[in-house]
Structure formats: structure tokens, C-alpha cells
Design a protein around this nucleic acid. Sequence first.
DNA 1: CGCATTTGACCATC
DNA 2: GATGGTCAAATGCG
Length: 289
Amino acid sequence: MAMRPKTEMSPPPATPSPSDQRDAVIEELRKGSQLAEFLRQQVELIPEDRCRDAALANVSNISTALASSLSVLQSEKEQYCSSSSYDPGHASGASGGGVRNGPVARSRNRKAKHRRGTYGEDLPIKEILTEAPENDRFHWRKYGEKKILHADFPRLYYRCGYSDEHKCPAKKYVQQQNSGDQPMFLVTLINDHTCDTLFPDEDQDQPPSSPSSANNSQVLDFSKASLSSAVGVSRLKEEEDADMSVTVPSYNYTYDELSSSSLPFLSPKQWEMEMDIKSLFRRHSGDGN
DNA sequence: CGCATTTGACCATC
DNA sequence: GATGGTCAAATGCG
């Protein structure tokens, strides 16, 4: 509601500060990521299987390296921003809807459990930069959205969809990093899943049930509501046109393997591609079976 | 009608 | 006081 009046900071200095240089590097890395994606699409057109697969593997490695570097720099940048004055640029971005009928009168007497800025103490935290924050095979339930200082886009707060039934403590924060055709999202994963909601390794032949009723959530929810209007709408729209409800292919990767590996969250199509590449790699690198 | 999302309020921390 | 994280009533969708 009441938007705080924005105060314009001083214009950028003539000589680039370390933060400016970092921003420049981040920008270049983003461009690189986008270019890598374009390259991937071009490589897909290569008719020869072997050449195409090898090239795709290389592109994949490039993307991964760029994403990792971006993630590191973004973390640094956030730390820097929180400890020094930093030009936020413009903080509009999110539409946030916000049109509601009448005032919301609420009286609450509760105790907040959060501890601002301290979730890194001893909790398992993972930060992943990805183009597809929604695709991680878990059922998430959004519980909040917040405009973050110095961020162009609001941060979205999700908790495990089974946090109540299974007391699963897993949470994730999704922060869009940039706009454009393929926006990047910084996904912060907090706590490991204790619920057993990953789809099984094998026998995925049976048709998926609806996300809301499935205890074993095997369907990724691509409904518009799953992501805020501020996040990835343009990209999601395309997937929405193709197929709103996508059955996740079955792979032998656990979530931890995925998170600890440099494999970012991917769209289902990218998932298949990534897995194909990895299996090809294993074969080509000679370990056979 | 039930459930997930939205969104302003609330609260702890910095 | 500013900010980030969470709560929960209101809302909307299937």
C-alpha cells in the first residue's frame, strides 16, 4: 500500500567504483548467459547427433560456469549493498496488484518466529541462480511477497507445500535479478526437505494427479498463480501456451545432487536435455556402464 | 465450496 | 526508524 516516497541518490560517479565494476561484470555475465542460451538453441539445429551432443555439453558447461560466477558476484553485491550506501536505481518493477475492496481490518496477537538476516547462522542454505525457479520437483506454497530495498523486483517467499502435514521446514526465496526475455532468478533454499515428496526414480507411467491433491507431488504446478505476476510472466506465458501442467521426467538425481551440483533449475524440456547430455558424457568419458 | 494466492499488517533484528 | 520475514484475512480460481 502506501508507497514510501523514493529519494533519488546522487548520480553515479565519473570514475567507476568497485561496486560499479562488479555490476558491470554481472551485466556481462548475464549477457553471456543469454548468449549461451541462444547458442544452445542454435546448436540444437545441428543435424549430426555426435557433434550436436558434444556441442550441447560444452554449451551446458559454459552456462553452468556463468551461472556460478553470477551467483557469487550477486552474493557479494548483496553484502556490499547491505553495508554501504548503494544506488538502488529504480525500485518500481513489481505491479503487485494491490487493488483491494475496502480496508482490511485485522487484529492479531501472535509472535513472529522469523529472525531477520540471521538465517545463515546454522541453517542449510543454498543459493542458486536459475532461469526457472519453479522447476525443482517440489510442491511449494507461496506465503509472502516483499519489495526488497535496492531490488527491482519483489522477493517471493515459499514454503514446502507439505510443511503442515509433514512438518517439512524447507523454504525458498525467489528474487528476480533482471528483466528481459530470459530473466534470471536468485533462488535461496533454506532447510532441506524432510517430506518425502520427490517423485520416485522409476515407474512414472501412471498419469499424474492434480497438484493440490497429490501427496506425492509429481506434477509441477505451472499455473499462473504459482508465480507472482512480477516474476517470469513473459517466460511462463510461453510454457502456459504449450502446456500448463507438465509431467516431470524421471531421473535418478536426488534433489541434493541437483542442488549441490551446478545444475540450475530447469524447465522440463531443459531437464531432459541436461540429463541426456550428462548420460552422454558418462558414456563418452569411457565409464560405459 | 475448498484451496492456493494475494497483500497489508505485524514483529524481530539491524 | 528501516528493513526483511512471516502471518492471516480477503480474494480468486477451479
